[in-house]
Design a binder for these strands. Structure first.
Lengths: 212, 212
DNA sequence: GCGCTAACTTACCGTCGCTAACTTAGCGCG
DNA sequence: CGCGCTAAGTTAGCGACGGTAAGTTAGCGC
């Protein structure tokens, strides 16, 4: 009944199956909504293989999900780079980054949720390295450019980047968690929040306003 | 071995066990980190009862978690109200609300994550009603006060409230997901983001800045 | 053509969420 | 008082899950 219809990979090409497993997991995840509803058995069947074969490529289910997360971050980074391509003004670059970030989250809510909100992935360093070397680095670079041009002011570059990131993540997470919220057009809402946050950094705060 | 040590509740007091179950679930959740690692069997053992007894009070595990979420929101609301007690200036009220919101999230990360980021709770209306009738309503009222006094400006009150909520949620979610992030003191970071967002609403945006 | 091992499979374990069917304690009522 | 009714549990067990041990097979090296 559930016989594997897949032909055995030729000698050196075990990696091929690994990628197919990740892809199938992402697809099932998009349909199921949460990782716990994607069973290793279902993934195995989707790629035409028996369950234990999954464990030849991933230590356990969490490791499989971690691989999915890394793939999702790679995809997110690609889209952010594509969105900011040709945009030279630092503030406009930041806007492009932020909007494409939120759009990605809304387009792939289950993937974004797994990647940024799932507690499964606590002490996984790979992921943080991934983040630091990709999307985050680009964001931080754009902030640094804007600071250098005097378009943004703040205590230090990194702080501004974190704050912008928090704003973008807040919008994404809120819209994913409560899609029925009457915010009007989600992307317009995102734009307002991002611009408000950036606007708050185009001048020094009045004395006694922000916590010191 | 695993014999129930609990005495049967007297006739009308089945509700008592229900509350104990919720409390035990919250405790186990705080330790385990994620809902899928809290088994119904473990909850049952924690309250000194056999597994099927749980299902006398909750339709299934998701319903149990939903009850936990409602309890968490109730707790959050209590703390926010307590934090803003005696603060009369609308902007300072908002600040108190926001900071206590973030502090609650950081104090009970697993509870906050379940309540605001878990996909289990999609079509549950009770929760949204809960939110609308408690914390959110208070937040929105404070924003309305600030708008009326001219301390905040914006397209409409509700939009500002959503934006502030997104900012607070962004900070909370980011700090929970990446506690090792070098943001310095977390609450100071939260204060900066919240104040920046509010600051961005203390004046009308320059033409062509925010998306229209 | 033959051994070695990569790339699987079959068979199975303990645990999970959940249910059916039975038991028992205590209140209402004659 | 005692007896039936039902709330508040229990015991037993199903199917699906994550994961493992041990066997099988295909193809490259020699």
């Amino acid at each position: 009944m559930t016989q594997a219809r897949r032909r055995r990979s030729v000698r050196g090409t075990g990696e091929r199956l690994r990628e197919e497993i990740i892809e199938a997991t992402k697809e099932l995840l998009a349909r199921a909504g949460r990782a716990q509803d994607v069973s290793v058995r279902a993934v195995a069947e989707a790629v035409g293989v028996t369950t234990p074969s999954i464990y030849l490529h991933f230590e356990d289910k969490d490791a499989l999900m971690e691989a999915v997360v890394i793939d999702v971050f790679r995809e997110l980074d690609e889209e952010m780079i594509a969105a900011a391509e040709g945009v030279t003004d630092p503030l406009e670059r930041l806007r492009s980054y932020g909007l494409s970030y939120v759009r990605f989250a809304l387009d792939h809510p289950e993937h974004y949720r797994l990647a940024t909100m799932d507690p499964s992935l606590k002490p996984k360093k790979q992921i943080d390295e991934m983040l630091r070397e990709a999307a985050f680095t680009h964001l931080n670079a754009a902030v640094a450019d804007a600071v250098e041009l005097g378009e943004l002011v703040g205590p230090d570059t990194l702080s501004i980047t974190f704050e912008l990131w928090a704003a973008a993540h807040g919008v994404a997470a809120l819209l994913i968690a409560k899609p029925e919220l009457p915010v009007g057009d989600p992307m317009a809402f995102a734009d307002r929040v991002l611009c408000t946050t950036a606007l708050g950094h185009t001048m020094a705060p009045p004395d006694g306003f922000a916590g010191t």
